[in-house]
């Protein structure tokens, strides 16, 4: 599997976090000075990202997979509307993946297997969390941004996922949720930031350390580490425990905020995967809603 191109789109309304909350240390902790809010639908934001891909309609796309949570429509799948709007042919499959911050990494795991038949896939991430937030909740309002990305994935037998490790724990559902029922937290998104941070320390850090150990045992050089960009306190809290050169653990939370399933593709646009193959690999780690955590190593098969 190769990722041929990634394009992105951010919510058009730029909001200064300091204008939302009078707490000077807030930005110091999150590292996020501006968040972005979309004044359009999630699908519309996704269309913007897709339309930045040159000649998308001419590409032999066979599958359109949209990672989105929560979607604009309960039905039909939002990927179907998206596929129509960007001019994909009708002889394709299009469906949604209802997953959050681990969604892109998990989608790559699925796409790699699906590429055996659907030899070129459009993988889209799109979330508009800001419309679900309680305005008074600074732990969510100060970090989340609305965004979308579009990545074309194609068959390539030389490169792909050579290691993967997943964790899914529904018992921690209450730490990050938005219920369909308005009775639950008034229908707003709820996030227990401290407990999720602890989850990243107790679960995500060991998972990534295991992946690094796999690379060491197989004499693989790690060229890049792509972590979900939750916020500075989360990213730095993980980064300090990783036995790698810190300059290859990329960061962009300070530029875009937490764009949910889009954080890693935003990183990929700025730091494309090393596809030279050989012994150089990349580690991608998405974690969050579920709670879930997925870590992969990408390199030469």
């Amino acid at each position: 599997m190769r990722l041929l191109i990634t394009q992105t789109a951010l919510g058009n309304r730029r909001i200064r976090v300091a204008d939302l909350f009078d707490a000077p240390d807030l930005i110091e902790k999150t590292g996020i000075e501006h968040v972005y809010e979309a004044e359009e639908s999630t699908t519309s934001l996704a269309v913007k990202a897709c339309r930045k891909i040159p000649n998308l309609q001419a590409r032999p796309i066979k599958l359109c997979l949209m990672v989105t949570q929560p979607p604009d429509d309960f039905l039909p799948a939002n990927a179907i509307d998206l596929a129509n709007q960007v001019g994909l042919p009708s002889n394709i499959i299009a469906f949604d993946l209802n997953q959050g911050c681990s969604g892109f990494v998990q989608a790559l795991c699925l796409v790699e297997r699906l590429l055996d038949y659907y030899s070129e896939t459009l993988l889209v991430t799109a979330d508009r969390y800001r419309s679900k937030l309680d305005q008074a909740d600074r732990s969510t309002n100060s970090v989340f941004s609305d965004a979308a990305t579009a990545t074309v994935c194609a068959t390539d037998n030389r490169l792909g996922i050579i290691y993967e490790d997943h964790y899914t724990d529904g018992a921690k559902r209450n730490l990050l949720f938005q219920s369909a029922s308005k009775e639950d937290n008034n229908g707003h998104l709820h996030m227990s930031g401290a407990e999720i941070w602890m989850f990243t320390r107790l679960q995500v850090v060991p998972q990534i350390q295991k992946a690094i150990q796999y690379c060491e045992e197989n004499d693989l050089k790690i060229g890049g580490v792509y972590l979900h960009q939750a916020s500075r306190i989360v990213v730095h809290g993980i980064k300090k425990f990783l036995p790698v050169d810190k300059s290859i653990v990329f960061e962009n939370y300070h530029i875009h905020g937490n764009t949910v399933s889009s954080t890693i593709p935003f990183l990929l646009k700025e730091h494309p995967l090393d596809e030279s193959g050989g012994t150089t690999v990349s580690i991608l780690a998405g974690f969050g809603v579920g709670l879930t955590s997925s870590v992969i190593v990408y390199g030469e098969k």
Partner: peptide
Amino acid sequence: DSLGHLSILSLLQQKLGDRYQE
């Protein structure tokens, strides 16, 4: 709040180091 508690945990880790079991 949630963010405040996160700050407490982060500072605990900084100040207590190895003495601190998460």
